[in-house]
Amino acid sequence: MLLRKLIGAEVTLSYKIISRAKSSWDIVAGVCVERLPVVTPPLNEIQQKFKDLLWTIETEKSLKSDHELRHENDKVQAELLKNEAVDVDLDAVSKITAQDFEDAATDELTQFKFADLLTDADKKGVKSTPERCLQRHLILVTEQKLGKDAKNILPQGLWKEGETLRQTAERILSEQCGSGLKVKFVSNAPCGFYNYKYPAEINGKLGAKVFFYYANYNEGDVDKKSKPNWLTRNELTELLPEKYNRTVQSFLIEETN
């Protein structure tokens, strides 16, 4: 009985090893480079309402600031001056009132020019740079040659004997997008899986198994020859093949509002 069990285990194990050895699939590493939002996304209705409420309660419960005290004092002094009270100490009347200070500060604020939320790329409709849609998550999509036709998908490439999949992912990214692109891989493990069949067998391989690695964009530009596009979630849905898109979005954070 025990012997039979042992033999059975042995057989399944060796079967596994054999089936692995003559695997008829190419191992491919894909890289999902994401640029995280730079600017906080706009608040939705309820968030805005609740924020306002918190702000009112906070003001109600607070104590008066130095500036407010100064403002009140100014008012009292002005009142005394108007009534020509005898005991007005002219030195005590400040030359610059709190109101003046407030006006000057407001002036300075209005003169300061904040950077535009819509970048140049947004205005021109250019998608090849990560400096667009600052409030959104962006995914790097490049043009890949699959057989005869070119497709817009995530950068990917064949695994070579002797390297780990993570190394493959890093190599592919620097090969295809140039060494100027700086990213941070966040794991040794793949975050997603996708497989597709070749139209005809290539070197005895049925198709490719793609293992996606996730990385965060740090800085630098992508080589133009790979025809890069930085796309939001909605644009991904439009551009990528349907099943592929579903796989990619299954390991990405969903964008609310």
């Binding site: 995280l36 730079v38 600017v39 906080t40 535009d116 939320l117 600052l134």
Partner: peptide, 8 residues
């Protein structure tokens, strides 16, 4: 994230 975009 920031509340306004950084000025280059």
């Amino acid at each position: 994230t920031f509340s306004t975009p950084p000025i280059k």
